[in-house]
């Protein structure tokens, strides 16, 4: 056959290259980028598609990854892991000290409903791990021994433990702090409008175009339904719910928000949504109120001006701070 072989080969390669290049291009009016961080999907939205916005979003993710590296209990070189392993006291990074300062304040004011020393208890239940289980009473009692708001002391950047075996856990607050840091990086880069959403816990920067952001609050017993829609600009919204992470044994549901007093999942609420100026504060308070229940929780919140809450109690009744109605759409 009179075929020009080199020509055929070249043509074939060109054809393959062309096929590989098919489907390119695309345009974006709004940036919406996601990354798996802090054990959840973190999404940053910026209503700009330019290079500077893209760089700011990348920097914000890098900042959140830095916070995760400091505060993840699963990384042996994190402040949290080193502190848990430490005998007495340890100097931590300025970021970690800031989180401890607010965390210990909320822990003290909530009379220990919010607690930073649940590391051993959480490891016992292993809810985030592959083999969650219900521990027996003796194990729980041992894990609760010596914990509480007084078990840790912060002095400048030094954190000291009352007992060598205390294991620190910033699970109820580190995510909020990381969100705050991401917003700070975005604002520092000149971004005026943005949202940072870490698995349903979020903070806003500015408004969304000419109108406020509309934030839907999920109904704790129906994923399709909304409890409310809030209109907000530049605030943080954090929801703690018993439906987020749980496992079931013999028809009983064990979720991830523990009551430090009993060592079992807190049972007074189905979900608590907190609106505050910082995601870290909203994160810590959402956990505290969830453990305290609606009445005591609302009483605690009177100490924090500007903080609003929407609570679904265990019986399904909703409770709210007086100022929440103004935020509803």
């Amino acid at each position: 056959m009179p075929l020009n072989r080199p020509l055929i080969v070249v043509l074939l390669l060109v054809l393959l290259a062309a096929l590989a290049l098919v489907k390119r291009g695309g345009r974006e009016a709004e940036l919406r980028e996601g990354r798996i961080l802090l054990g959840t999907l973190v999404e940053i939205q910026v209503p700009r598609g330019d290079r500077a916005a893209r760089d700011a979003v990348t920097a914000a993710f890098a900042e959140m990854a830095r916070i995760e590296a400091l505060m993840s209990p699963h990384r042996p070189d994190s402040d949290v892991a080193r502190l848990s392993a430490a005998e007495e006291s340890l100097e931590v990074a300025p970021d970690t000290a800031e989180v401890f300062a607010l965390g210990l304040d909320v822990a003290a004011r909530s009379a220990g409903a919010f607690d930073l020393t649940l590391g051993r208890l959480k490891a016992l239940w292993d809810l985030e791990g592959d083999n969650p289980r219900v521990p027996d009473d003796a194990e729980i009692a041992a894990a609760l021994e010596g914990i509480g708001p007084g078990a840790l002391r912060l002095d400048g950047r030094w954190v000291s433990k009352a007992r060598p075996d205390l294991a620190v856990d910033l699970g109820g607050i580190a995510k909020g702090y990381a969100i705050d840091r991401a917003i700070a990086v975005l604002a520092g880069a000149g971004i005026e409008q943005a949202s940072v959403n870490a698995g349903g816990d979020l903070r806003l920067l500015g408004s969304r175009g000419a109108r406020p952001w509309r934030i839907g609050i999920r109904h704790p017993r129906s994923a399709e339904e909304l409890l409310a829609t809030l209109e907000l600009s530049g605030r943080a919204v954090v929801t703690s719910g018993d439906y987020e992470r749980f496992f079931e044994v013999d028809g009983r549901r064990y979720h991830h928000i523990f009551d430090p007093r009993s060592g079992y999942p807190a049972s007074a609420c189905q979900s608590v949504t907190l609106v505050a100026d910082s995601a870290m504060l909203a994160d810590a308070l959402a956990t505290a109120v969830f453990v305290l229940g609606p009445e005591k929780g609302l009483a605690l919140l009177t100490e924090f001006p500007g903080v609003e809450a929407l609570i679904v109690a265990a019986d399904g009744a909703t409770h709210a701070t007086p100022g929440l109605a103004e935020l509803k759409r």
């Binding site: 949202s195 349903g200 979020l202 952001w213 934030i215 609050i217 999920r218 954090v238 929801t239 719910g241």
Partner: peptide, 9 residues
């Protein structure tokens, strides 16, 4: 499209 921009859960 839903009636909200972001969902808190």
């Amino acid at each position: 499209s839903p009636a909200y921009d972001l969902l808190s859960h």
